[in-house]
Every structure is written in C-alpha cells, then in structure tokens.
C-alpha cells in the first residue's frame, strides 16, 4: 500500500511539473513538428525510399519520419528527465526522495515510470497535431503503438537516469547533448532507413544497427502499423535492463558517484 501511495504521489508530482512547465511542453512539440513540416518537405525529393517493412506501398518521407520523430520526443524527454534529476540533486530535492523509507530501486523506477508516462502523452499530442496536417495512421495503429512507446520511453528514461548518476554538475549537461542525444538520433533509422546508410558507409551502418534508439524507433514504427517486431522489442528490453542496472549502481549509496561528491 505504501508503495502505491508513493508511486501515485511521484506520478502526480511529475504530471504537475509537466503542466507547470508549458514552455517545455511546447518546445518538445515544436521540435519534431519543424522536422516534420519543414525538414521533411525539403528532403522529400532528395531521399527516395524503397518499400520496406512495415510499409506495403510507397510512402511519403513525412510518413517515414513520423516514428523517428516520436522517438525524438522520447529521447529528448528522457534526457530532459536526466537534466531535471541532476538539477534535483544539486537543489537537494532528490535527497528528500532518496531518504524516503522505500527501496531505492522502487524510487528510481517510480521516477522513471512517471517520466515515461509524460513522454508518451507528448507523443500522442504530436501524433494528434500531425493528423491535423494530414499525416494519419489507422486507428488501431494508435492503440498498438502505446506499449511500444511505453517500452521505448522507459528505455530512454533509464538511459537518462544512468547518465544523471554520472553527471556531476549541471554545467556538464551540454556534453550529454553532444555525445549522447545527437549521435543517438542521427545514427539511427529515425530519419533514413538503414539500407540507405549502408550504401554510404558500412561502419556507420553497423553503428546504427547497434544503437538501441534504432530498435526503439523500429519497435514504434512497426507498432504504428499494428505489426510486431520481435528483434526490436528484444533489443529495446535488453537496453532497458542494462541502463536500469547502470542507474541502480550509480545511485547505490555504497558505490556510484553519490559517495564521490563529498
């Protein structure tokens, strides 16, 4: 019962923070919408796309990048959560959470679930706006995408959590942008199919193929067309387990950076 009450409170707190930070919500939506409405329009002619699963016919470039932009929202939100965790730690409110009489894994998981829920809500807001611009999916696709979005959001949130245990100061967060977000996003299938990358460079192709973000995007892409991609699910769940283990080690009071701070 105590766990349920605590989880509800952490989720409610995250939701309230989400509502209070409207600018963050708008920014999270504007970013993928610019890619969808401006970037995709410009690159439509330049990037020819063959028919690849889950698509059964030729699609527009806008349609192709929608799952990638859903992933972009989840990725940026995961990192944003990491930023707010570093901020919370510097400001002290993380201490309050960590001194609650709850197992640390539960506290971190609750933060993760709350952050992931907010990310998924933003993805649906984005899909709604995309639909207004004529980029629609079959109704069942919106439903089937929910578990895929949730798992991908948890995986990226866990990465943010692990990173937040490593980042000593808020100022170091710029490094996360340069060394995590951008490589993860551009070395993935979010903006171009992997066979396109293979044509240019086998090394880059291999990097894209091992990037967990690629698998998250593919999981979402297939789910949006009500199809199941088992390898993508497997890789995404594996990455979630690895990142969560790293986060738990990072926040373990007996090891990790909490004890190195002094």
């Amino acid at each position: 019962m105590i766990w349920w009450i605590a989880l509800r409170a952490i989720m409610a707190r995250e939701a309230l923070r989400f509502v209070q930070q409207r600018a963050r919500f708008v920014a999270a939506l504007v970013r993928p919408l610019i890619w969808l409405l401006v970037f995709a329009a410009g690159f439509r002619a330049a990037l020819g796309l063959a028919i690849i699963p889950p698509y059964t016919t030729y699609i527009s470039y806008e349609t192709y990048i929608v799952p990638g932009l859903c992933g972009m929202i989840l990725l940026f939100n995961g990192m944003q959560s990491s930023l707010s965790l570093v901020y919370d730690r510097e400001m002290g409110s993380m201490r309050l959470l960590l001194t609650a009489p709850l197992p640390r894994w539960f506290i971190l998981s609750a933060k993760l679930v709350a952050g992931a829920a907010m990310s998924v809500l933003q993805v649906y807001a984005f899909l709604g706006i995309a639909a207004l611009f004529g980029i629609t999916l079959k109704p069942w696709g919106y439903v089937a995408a929910l578990p895929a979005l949730a798992i991908t959001a948890l995986m990226l949130g866990a990465l943010g959590l692990a990173l937040s245990s490593l980042i000593k100061q808020l100022e170091n967060f710029a490094g996360v942008m340069n060394f995590v977000i951008f490589p993860m996003f551009f070395l993935s299938s979010a903006l171009y199919p992997l066979w396109k990358m293979a044509e240019s460079s086998q090394l880059l192709y291999r990097l894209c193929a091992v990037n967990p973000f690629t698998h998250g995007v593919e999981l979402v892409r297939f789910a949006l067309y009500a199809q199941f991609n088992a390898p993508a699910l497997g890789w995404t769940v594996l990455a979630l387990a690895v990142f969560m283990t790293a986060a738990l080690r990072g926040y373990d009071p007996a090891r990790g950076m909490m004890t190195k701070k002094g």
């Binding site: 019962m1 009450i5 605590a6 509800r8 409170a9 707190r13 009489p101 709850l102």
Partner: peptide
Amino acid sequence: LLYFAALHGLG
C-alpha cells in the same frame, strides 16, 4: 506536506 506524507505511505 502531502507529497512528503505519500513518500512515507500516508495518504
């Protein structure tokens, strides 16, 4: 106060 109470299982 309510947020903290919840972290201690009080609701």
